[in-house]
Amino acid sequence: MPKDHGIGASSKRREDIRFLTGTGNYTDDINLRGQAHVVFVRSQVAHGRLNKVDTRDAEKMPGVIRVFTAKDFEGVGGIPCGWQITDRAGKPMLEPKHPVLAEG
């Protein structure tokens, strides 16, 4: 039987009230004056090779402030690994790249 008091009893979540009354504040609910919106262009295929990114048409669209590609984030990114291990031969482990945006 679940306990209703003391150590081991489940406690009511305090954040539930705002979620249950529609007063949570999710990213999509934030609408500040002058706020810009961002759209991420994702791969349209499940597995493929990105050869090149052509942003010319996107830049020409009305209201577009800026189009970002991997070039804008050179030197940014990667997720540092806290504890590098080596393989049996003593070679350092391979770290996958974690680019901010996909590179062509």
Partner: peptide, 16 residues
Amino acid sequence: QQAFQDHHGLQCGFCT
């Protein structure tokens, strides 16, 4: 709403 809280019927609350 009270039953949802009492029975932990939500976590992130987005679908709630």
